[in-house]
């Protein structure tokens, strides 16, 4: 059973629908015990970093996420919250991985919204997916490329579309909104 973390930060209905369509067993929960027992965790999120961190703290879920040792997938803001710090409102994050979330600067339009291609695909999440597949993105802040980038994307600059280190995975795009390519990534995660 996959635990999808429910902390009032965004559109979880679409994610739950997609998982159900794909025959992946998942439960939406804010219960730390259920999360700790789950075989995998998906950590979604949209909106502002500060509000999301406050909601996590209010739900008393920080420690439970930090100590999780099985496959963990952060999506969009969920991936960003896995870092140390965000330029968005000078906010401290969960610190699961060592990165700083930065603001898009010098690009004509923010948010980065729409379908964009991902490249330099590495690791099990992208198994069966073609280089330069298009995925759906919507975000105003980004995670820079680093040693643990598992996919890149370009919007003015190259940034991390995907992350992987140990049991921690992240995707900046929304796999649940990315058609067949996104479904493949969710299936790959479920199969880990």
């Amino acid at each position: 059973m996959i635990a999808v973390v429910d902390y009032n930060a965004g559109n979880t209905r679409s994610l739950m629908n997609r998982l159900q369509d794909l025959g992946i067993k998942a439960t939406l929960t804010k219960d730390a015990d259920v999360i700790a027992q789950a075989s995998k965790v998906i950590f979604p999120g949209v909106g502002a970093a500060k509000a999301a961190m406050s909601s996590l703290q209010a739900a008393d879920l920080e420690d439970c996420l930090k100590s999780y040792k099985k496959p963990f997938l952060g999506i969009c803001l969920g991936m960003q919250l896995m870092g140390e710090h965000s330029e968005e409102g000078d906010q401290s994050l969960l610190g699961l991985l060592d990165f700083e979330v930065q603001e898009f600067k010098g690009v004509p339009k923010v948010p980065h919204m729409g379908w964009n291609s991902i490249f330099n695909l590495k690791g099990p999440l992208y198994r069966g997916l073609a280089e330069k597949a298009d995925l759906y993105f919507v975000h105003s802040y980004y995670v820079p490329l680093s040693d643990f980038s598992s996919a890149g994307c370009n919007y003015g600059i190259d940034f991390s579309a995907g992350l992987e280190r140990d049991n921690f995975f992240g995707c900046q795009f929304h796999p649940e909104k990315s058609g067949p390519a996104g479904s493949l990534i969710l299936k790959n995660f479920a199969a880990l």
Binding site: R13, S14, N17, R18, D21, Y136, V138, H174, E176, K177, S178, G179, P180, G182, S183
Partner: peptide, 11 residues
């Protein structure tokens, strides 16, 4: 909206 979200995998 609920019915659309149940079957559509694009935004």
């Amino acid at each position: 909206c609920e019915r659309v979200a149940a079957v559509i995998d694009i935004p």
